[in-house]
Design a protein around this nucleic acid. Structure first.
Lengths: 365, 365
DNA sequence: TCATCCAATGGAAACGTTTCCACCACATAG
DNA sequence: CTATGTGGTGGAAACGTTTCCATTGGATGA
């Protein structure tokens, strides 16, 4: 039955005929012990099937050997892969990962962090709705718990593992501009819940300006529109002059193509589409998706490495932004000259654009 | 600094001028206490910012309030969503989730379970390479730890949350048969590492037999082939008479289309393709993917519910298989009559086909 | 030969809880 | 007025570790 669950070091010591202190020293290799007793203890432990209680250990050492991980959702492969990266990097370290999802809800973020803290995780790695405005995260920081953010651009007082969204978006703008696109748009989902999306728009916008092009339109949609091609099509139809769309992520880019098809617009002849993230499936599509390729897994790994470093008392240094690359695809082409360009700028003004994102965001790469 | 981390119930008791026992009773509402002392304790706790140490609690109560979760990979959205479901269902219960990935490696499975056990998780939810052959899992079972499998078909002594792969595959076979397809194939990745895949093939095969059709070909490929369309195309080219392919999962189905395109085969005119899982992106493709739609999230939720039930001492009952549905798409059509059907059966014999899967697998729905 | 040192060892405290038990005061029933 | 509860309380044990400290015995150096 379950009698084996209650084998403690005391049992081992007794069976080996020594004190618990000695048994502990032998089993941990943490002090002197004669070959004789060492042998006896090891045999006893083996025969009894002893294994340490990490709870007892945690209590005594005040280290739970656990790191808490908070992401918006695992249904989004980008986050799932990042978590996988964290997990992989943590593997041999003895640390385990406690996971939590917020479903893109700021209040859930707070609750989750609180929960993780109450579980006494030794460290935190998180992607949140608004880490800069999270009292609970600040609390954790005050307690001296190592914290690593993922995906977020550098933020005062926190280390983060990220790709430079601003820079990457500029690359997309450049691609559009080089091909001669003037009427462009940025399409985002849940704009307010993602600083990443915001920074991408900022970079895109900034580069268009720098090139003397009309401001890109900003199209924000809800989840409902993203999942129902006809509704998305209706929204696109309000921007008939558009020749190129930069979608805030690859799924959105795929949805755009679906919607465009409903409108009878050909991709890329009538509309160029570029995504963001570089998810694997984009490669396999009939028209491989042009996108910014990133590696969420590498991001998770870097975050975990930094975390382990902090946990070993290492210095708190912000690593450089992770690399990204523009991936060419079949969804990007020259603009269709038939879509008359009357020179008018995009109609919709930016809603919540950070003036000119902080300089360090773009420097450390 | 980090002085707030060391506030224990002893501090609260002292500050409130009472014994720890009393403080504990007040804070837990677990015993009598005068209104007076109750007030004092609560105020003290509030002012000191006290919060329970779940480690101390775990030690005393011998419950870590933690469930371990093991899946092959989070990079596969099917598993990621299942984990998300588990997480969501666990949310209000006070249980936290410790996560681990095996990367489809049986040895890693063992190591992971061992790790989770050593962390003294109160329960386990797992998808493994071979749960029926895992000594560590048996050990956990012996210790009386509640265990729930996900995705696996019912297995002696374990409860599982699953969809009936055998039945679902029969539905696909029926779709093919009804349209008049005779030369079909089942395409699987890593056949040996997935009992799910095996059962799908078995169901597909069985239904073809039942209809008096030629045995379907079994095409097993490695990850390399799956990700490189030209290599997959080369493999497909060896089966020129095929009119329909049942891919073991949706990504594979998408890859098949890519490969078919390289060969100049039109989908669905020259080749019908059906997938499995029903991932969201399949809907958004230019040709929406015909597939078996399942809900990994519901699976995770069901598993978590069953687990919570077990943890509360509930009886160990196997819930019925989760529903699935055939999702029509644009990748399935009548066979092309030009692809001559000479009546010869498929060449490649089944490699490791379970004779006729256990009856209960198909019954409880 | 004696003083010193060191490896080997075990007892006990500490970590933060919960809970058993004993105690006290007070009220109520006889 | 005495027995019998009962609500309120705190001391102490227990959970499984690790680690500090004291004790032992034997070896080494003078």
């Amino acid at each position: 039955m379950s009698k084996s669950s209650s084998i403690t070091i005391k049992d081992v010591a007794q069976s080996a005929g020594c004190g618990v202190a000695t048994a502990s020293r032998v089993l941990n290799n943490s002090g002197p012990a004669s070959a004789d007793v060492r042998e006896r203890v090891e045999r006893a432990a083996r025969e009894l099937g002893f294994s340490f209680s990490s709870i007892g250990r945690a209590l005594q050492s005040r280290r739970s050997m656990t790191v808490g991980c908070l992401v918006p959702s695992l249904a989004n492969p980008v986050f799932a892969e990042a978590v996988q990266g964290v997990q992989a990097e943590l593997l041999g370290s003895g640390y385990q990962m406690l996971i939590s999802c917020s479903n893109y809800d700021g209040a859930a973020d707070e609750a989750a962090i609180e929960m993780l803290l109450s579980k006494e995780t030794d460290a935190l790695v998180a992607t949140m709705v608004a880490p800069d405005r999270s009292p609970t995260l600040r609390l954790a920081q005050k307690r001296g718990i190592p914290i690593l953010l993922m995906f977020h651009d550098p933020l005062d007082g926190f280390i983060t593992s990220y790709v430079d969204n601003f820079d990457a978006a500029k690359v997309v703008a450049r691609q559009f501009a080089d091909l001669g696109h003037r009427r462009t748009a940025f399409l985002a989902l849940r704009f307010t819940t993602s600083d990443r999306s915001r920074n991408r728009y900022a970079g895109f916008h900034s580069e268009c300006r720098a090139r003397g092009l009309p401001d890109p339109a900003l199209i924000e949609i809800g989840e409902a529109e993203a999942n129902q091609p006809d509704r998305l099509a209706a929204i696109l139809a309000q921007h008939p002059k558009l020749t190129a769309i930069f979608a805030s992520n690859d799924f959105l880019a795929i949805a755009v193509q679906k919607a465009a098809r409903l409108l009878g617009w050909r991709v890329p002849q009538d509309l160029s589409v570029v995504g963001f993230d570089g998810i694997e499936v984009g490669r396999l599509l009939e028209k491989p998706l042009a996108t910014i390729e990133t590696s969420p897994e590498a991001m998770g790994r870097q975050a975990a490495r930094s975390l382990l470093n902090l946990l070993q008392g290492g210095p708190s240094i912000q690593p450089p932004a992770l690399p990204f690359a523009f991936r060419a695809g079949a969804t990007l082409a020259l603009p269709n000259p038939e879509k008359g360009d009357d020179g008018r700028g995009a109609t919709q003004p930016p809603s919540d654009l950070p003036a000119e994102p902080q300089a360090q965001t773009r420097m450390n790469r």
